[in-house]
Design a protein around this nucleic acid. Structure first.
Lengths: 295, 295
DNA sequence: AGCATTTAATAAGTATGAGTTATCAGATTG
DNA sequence: CAATCTGATAACTCATACTTATTAAATGCT
């Protein structure tokens, strides 16, 4: 004799409670009437409570049985709903993804991703955090982040990465600069200017790339200021404290009195990568990568 | 191959989800490890969703599994409570209500409620448990509690709440304090004292409110001790280790050698709320809310 | 490196009990 | 008082939830 209620008992109970007739209920359940009778009897024994009043000619719920009917209906409905949600989560249609990014990804790549997510997976929640390359790598490894938008030549073991956006670089000069788009010949024209750049520890790949751009133009830039915020850099340029070289995408999204001169001819590109932990099992991550890498 | 999930699967799943170790879980369930493995595998097959990530050396929940754990905990708790209620109804009692509370609700609100319940519904059983705000919220969501007495600015989705008692705050000072009710001018007189307060994670609203009281008096209190027990706080005050600010209601019910100075003039109030799960179907809960909110 | 000890999964056998059919006893109906 | 309902009981069977024995792979220890 089993002494544990099972869900089977619940479906049997509901059938009898609705039909109030053992034979009809048994038919509905595609089992025999004696089998149903014994199961209900067993259920009453396990619960220690009489659920049905069987008079030889009619079946009725007791007060306890009537209460139990409501509760079992609730539980079965809840269970059904849970199963549905479970499938959605498994397929990545429901859940959360934690995104880290460099400020320069906020101009185009992140909004694009968020719009696509909203469209295809409207029930997925996102949490966004602006972080340096280094902080993102750490957060990814510690599973505090699911996906990071970084500028890195390589990523540590355990992480995967893929390029998502290749941008040209642009010179950023004040509005009143005597060199502008019309008479611009090359970066070498700014060999004597002060440079304002993103800090090396915010993105060393960026820093090294800018250095190589200047090297190719046969000069070594005087770096007067470093910052981790694009806004700060533009403000300094606006006030005539120097010039800068940044990914072109940054020209959108800031209301600044500065000019952008796109460096179309140089070979260097500002490469934005997406990075994630190789063994991250968040199903939403997979969907995100599909959206980002178009696969 | 069975095509129907059973409650057995749920208890097995919970054991593995908690232990994250098949052999240990099997031991706890008093069954063999291979039996447990096949049952879990079967469960995954029936649901069509992978619940565990088995690496030869570690077991982890998937996103779907983690979600299911919470839902199954809810269902199992609800079921347990249903069984209890069923027995009570069978015996002609109305039912049971599980009450959680902060210690400071025990002075007036809880005794009032219990007296009214005893009067109007003498056959209703109550179970009482003193818990932190956070623990109460969790227990309510998982259906381990029907009603909670908390101090919270807001409650998570799924819970409803209502103010049941607004109390003034009182300063608690030693009997031999040179400042007492007769020469008390304001909280600022204690700017240099050590403060002993309820822990932030016991009730963050309380903590923040006390901080704002001190801010309004233009000082930031030195908090030398934190506790989750009113008795401890009073003991420390009694021994001259500092002063405290607590809801006035706490002055009744403890036999302590301390003075209460009621802060009638300040605007802050200690607000006690009652919280419950919006879709809780316990009929006694409705009656309780009627009694508490006078409707 | 290599041996001992983990882990979970697989294979094969067993025995419990959910289901079956056959039957019964009591109630209702013509 | 047959005929025909009802749900309960008895005896049997077969599916399957378990068991034990074993495997393959990973980790730890010397």
């Amino acid at each position: 004799m089993s002494y544990q209620i099972e869900l089977r008992h619940f479906t049997y109970f509901l059938a009898v409670a609705e039909e109030l007739h053992f034979r009809k209920a048994a038919e509905r359940l595609f089992i025999s009437q004696p089998g149903l009778s014994t199961q209900i009897k067993q259920m009453e024994a396990i619960l220690g409570v009489q659920l049905f009043e069987r008079d030889k000619k009619k079946v009725a719920l007791t007060a306890a049985g009537s209460f139990l009917k409501g509760e079992i209906e609730f539980i079965m409905n809840h269970l059904q709903q849970t199963k549905k949600q479970l499938k959605l989560i498994d397929k990545g249609h429901l859940g959360e993804i934690r995104i880290g990014f460099l400020g320069s990804a906020m101009q185009k790549v992140i909004p694009d991703l968020l719009l696509k997510l909203k469209d295809r997976f409207p029930k997925v929640h996102t949490s966004l955090e602006e972080l340096s390359n280094h902080a993102q790598v750490n957060a990814l490894l510690k599973d505090k982040l699911d996906i990071g938008f970084v500028r890195l030549a390589r990523v540590p073991k355990g992480l995967d990465h893929q390029t998502v956006y290749e941008d040209t670089f642009s010179l950023v000069v004040p509005m009143d600069s005597h060199i502008d788009g019309s008479n611009f010949k090359g970066v070498h024209q700014f060999a004597e200017n002060d440079f304002i750049l993103f800090s090396q520890d915010y993105s060393s790949l960026y820093f090294d790339t800018v250095m190589s751009i200047c090297e190719d133009a046969n000069f070594s830039p005087k770096v007067s200021h470093k910052s981790v915020h694009a806004l700060t850099i533009f403000k300094l340029v606006e006030n005539g404290l120097g010039v800068s070289i940044v990914p072109t995408a940054l020209q959108y999204g800031f209301k600044m009195q500065v000019q952008f001169i796109e460096l179309k001819t140089i070979k260097q590109r500002a490469i934005l990568s997406v990075a994630w932990k190789a063994d991250n099992r968040n199903p939403v991550l997979k969907q995100c990568l599909n959206l980002l890498l178009g696969r």
